[in-house]
């Protein structure tokens, strides 16, 4: 009995740590969607690129991991701004669908470029965290997983404060709410768009950094983007706390399904469980847990 509870908690905790990574990538989805109305399919690729930045800054330039991390954040913010400027600015006024298709193209491009420049090899990330696991009342957890969870919760607090208190955060919400009214009171929509891309790239990089600590460095880690997609939908596409909670829930469900159902039904349940959840949510609650229901009056 006691042992089964322990297994359960163990699965929960490791689910939370991978869920934290989903949450950070999902947060990027939500930020861009909220501000610009575009669903960015390249979010997982941005995460992968961010992870590569930190990896190469550490291994090639022998930077301290903390410096490398900060530098990677700055570079990825810059990357976000450049992407917005080069690819999305010319698309202003075009149908949203075309812009979304462009982000699909961007995803392919980013992944291709990374494979071209840094190769396909799978690398071990020089993790800054001590490899001995942490023991929390009978349940053990890797230090890197533990810090992923901590970082996720820290990001929630930071972003809630950012959107409630800071001038730019409030302006971003105003733009998301009513673009034309925001423009008329002197908010530069262009600037808000680039800021949201920059922030989305930064959170993706944070997610990437933590993910390669519990996994490996390879261009294929961009598939996390596809896992973060159900997370963002579950939370409601336009809710910041929703993205975080959605990410955690998806991570936990995936891990529980993997831990309990895989044994009974054979492998693979873990991989599809999040998408089963996605389909169920879309049927029952199309706007997600915290999403704004758009009420159209007729």
């Amino acid at each position: 009995m006691n042992e089964s509870i322990q297994t359960f908690l163990q699965l929960m905790l490791s689910g939370m740590s991978i869920g934290g990574v989903y949450a950070m990538v999902a947060l990027g989805f939500v930020l861009i969607y909220k501000a610009t109305g575009v669903f960015n399919f390249a979010q997982g690729e941005l995460m992968m690129v961010g992870a590569y930045f930190s990896f190469y800054l550490i291994t090639q330039y022998h930077l301290h991991f903390f410096q490398a991390f900060l530098l990677a954040l700055i570079i990825s913010a810059f990357l976000g701004i450049v992407v917005e400027f080069l690819i999305l600015k010319p698309m202003v006024g075009e149908p949203i669908f075309s812009v979304v298709m462009i982000t699909v193209g961007l995803a392919v491009m980013l992944k291709g470029t990374v494979s071209l420049v840094w190769g396909h090899d799978v690398h071990q990330f020089p993790s800054p965290f001590i490899s001995s696991p942490l023991s929390l009342g009978g349940v053990t957890i890797f230090r890197s997983s533990f810090w992923t969870i901590v970082a996720t919760f820290a990001l929630v607090v930071i972003f809630i404060l950012f959107f409630r208190v800071s001038k730019v955060g409030i302006a971003m919400r105003a733009v998301a709410n009513d673009q034309r009214a925001a423009q008329i009171i002197g908010i530069s929509i262009r600037k808000i768009f680039s800021i949201s891309w920059a922030i989305a790239a930064v959170v993706a990089t944070i997610g990437g950094f933590f993910f390669v600590n519990i996994f490996f460095v390879t261009p294929d880690i961009s598939y996390i983007g596809m896992k973060a997609f159900p997370a963002a939908v579950l939370g409601g596409m336009d809710s910041v706390p929703g993205a975080i909670i959605g990410g955690l829930i998806i991570g936990i469900i995936e891990n529980l399904a993997g831990g309990y159902l895989d044994k009974l039904l054979g492998g693979g349940i873990k991989e599809i469980s999040s998408f089963v959840v996605l389909i169920l949510i879309l049927m029952i609650k199309p706007y997600g847990l915290f999403g704004k229901e758009e009420i159209t009056r007729v």
Binding site: I170, R173, A174
Partner: peptide, 17 residues
């Protein structure tokens, strides 16, 4: 055209952006 998802205070602060 207020920002209906923002509070009254936030609507005013954003006017001074």
């Amino acid at each position: 055209r207020i920002f209906d998802e923002l509070t009254v205070d936030e609507n005013l602060w954003v006017g001074a952006y």
